Structures are given as C-alpha cells and as structure tokens.
Simulated assay, not measured.
Amino acid sequence: MSAARSDILRQSLVISAVVFMVIAAMFGAGVFGGTPVQDLQNGALAADATILAPASRAFSIWSLIYLFMLAYTVWQALPAQRASDRQRRIGYPIAVTAVLNGAWLLAAQFTTLPLTVLTIVLLLVALGATMRLLVRHPPRTATESIFTDVTVGLHLGWVTLATVANITAWLTAEVAPESWSVVADVWGIAVLVAVVLIAAATAIGTRGRLAPALASAWGLIWIGVGRFSGEPESTPVAITAWIAAAIVVAVPLALWATGRRGELPRR
C-alpha cells in the first residue's frame, strides 16, 4: 500500500472511531432508546452510589472532551496533516481510545460491572500510551498541541478519575461486605491519596502538561461537592478531595515554575 493510501486509511479510521464514540455517547445519554448511565447497573454508576462518585455535574466534562475529539478528527483529516510523521504515530492510538470510550458505554448498557471495569482500565492504559507517544514526539506548533496534547490530556485526566469511580462502584455493589460503610471514609481518603500520587506521576511523565491535571482536578472538586452536599455524605472525604484537587494542579505548575519539565528525546 502506498504511503498516500495508508495515510488516507488512517484518517478514515480515526473518523470512523470517533463517530462510533459519539453515537455510543448519545446512546448512553438516553438517545436512540438507550438507558442513561446513572440508571444502569442497578444505579451503581450514579452520582450518589459510592463515597468516591463525583456529583452529577462533573460529567459535563464529557461534552468538552467530545468537542476536542471532534475538533481533532476534523483537523487530522485535513490534507496538510495527511503525511505528518506525528499523526502517523498517534492517529491509530487515538482511534483506539475513541473505540474503547464507546465500548465502555456499550458495556455499561449491556454487560456487567466487572466488564465495565476491564474496559475502562484498557481505556486508561491506551490513553497513557498515547500520551507517552505525544511526549516523546513533541508538537511543532501551538495549534498542534491544542488539537492533540490537550485533547488526549483532558481525556486521560478525566478517565483516571473515572477509573477510580468505576472500580469503587463495582467493589461497593458486588464485592464489599456490609461492614464496608464503617470504614468508607478511611478507605475513600486512602484512595484519594493514591489518586494524587498517580496524578503527580502523570504530571512528571508528561513533562508538566496541564490538561490531565485540570481534568483530574475537576473530578476531584466534584467528588468533594458530592460528599459535602449529597449522599453518601462525608465531610472528611470532601475536604480531602478538594485538597487533592489543589495538589494535582500545583504539581505541573511547579514543574513549569522551576523549569524542571525537560523533554524526552525523539525516537
């Protein structure tokens, strides 16, 4: 296959993958006869189901992520991007993340909580690998950075939080004993500390890219709101989540301020 045909195929597959993701999202929002996500799995994925579930307004970030994904899809399809070496490296990985995103929504609709956990973990791994490629092959322009690094970064940062929430939903609904609620606050705080460590490692690994931190912090803020003003109520978890949000954003800002971002060599 010639390089030109291979590039067109890549661009077409990215378009197809993102269209699939958007259709699945609409289905998950209750369009086309689908059941809204908060009502699936006996309510295990609802905003008031677990100690680490973000308040419902947190999920509005998906609209922003989808907007960036659609913008990337149009941009990467332009003739000027067809033979881009960077697009040749990241086009297929981004398509994989779009497919897994849509697959999670279908898994939530039609399968079981353990399969949703497996799917979202695969999505997190795919996003992490894609972000790593972007770091190793830095953008040449600010425009390219917005369409690629910001898009993947927002997706990665939010899915990091969503993975924690999804695993917690599964454990709470199907694994944890009745006594779980007695130590829920302690367990929730411990997990939030782990989230901070993961987010800090992400900031270092992505050389201070801010988008993942902002998306993770958004989720943490709304976990705090959910626990402070909703059910299950937990002031300790709410305060910890808000502190965690501040730390998550502070780490990449500190890397920028101290000039310790560095860059990985191109390969």
Rank of each mutant, 00 (worst) to 15 (best):
W104K: 01
W104L: 07
W104R: 04
W104F: 06
W104D: 00
W104A: 02
W104N: 00
L105A: 01
L106I: 11
L106M: 14
L106H: 06
L106P: 04
A107M: 05
A107I: 05
A107F: 04
A107C: 03
A107G: 02
A108N: 04
A108W: 00
A108T: 07
A108E: 08
Q109A: 09
Q109T: 05
Q109N: 06
Q109P: 06
F110R: 06
F110C: 10
T111K: 05
T111Y: 06
T111Q: 05
T111A: 13
T112M: 06
T112C: 13
T112G: 08
L113A: 11
L113T: 04
L113I: 11
P114L: 15
P114S: 08
L115P: 01
L115K: 02
L115I: 14
L115W: 11
L115S: 04
T116C: 09
T116R: 10
T116D: 04
T116F: 06
V117M: 13
V117A: 14
L118E: 10
L118C: 07
L118Q: 11
L118M: 14
L118D: 11
T119G: 03
I120N: 04
I120G: 03
I120T: 02
V121Y: 03
V121G: 01
V121P: 02
L122R: 12
L122W: 02
L122F: 12
L123H: 08
L123P: 11
L123M: 14
L123C: 11
L123N: 06
L124R: 01
L124H: 03
V125F: 11
V125K: 09
V125P: 06
A126Y: 10
A126V: 04
L127E: 00
L127V: 08
G128N: 14
A129H: 06
A129M: 04
A129Q: 03
T130K: 12
T130E: 08
M131G: 15
M131Q: 15
M131L: 13
R132W: 13
R132V: 02
L133A: 03
L133S: 09
L133W: 02
L134I: 09
L134Y: 05
L134G: 14
L134R: 08
V135R: 13
V135K: 04
V135L: 07
R136K: 03
R136E: 03
H137G: 02
H137C: 09
H137N: 13
P138R: 11
P138I: 08
P138N: 08
P139E: 15
P139N: 13
P139A: 15
P139H: 15
R140L: 11
R140Y: 05
R140K: 13
T141F: 12
T141W: 07
T141C: 09
A142K: 11
A142E: 09
A142R: 15
T143K: 15
T143G: 15
T143N: 11
T143W: 15
T143V: 13
T143I: 12
E144P: 07
E144I: 07
E144M: 10
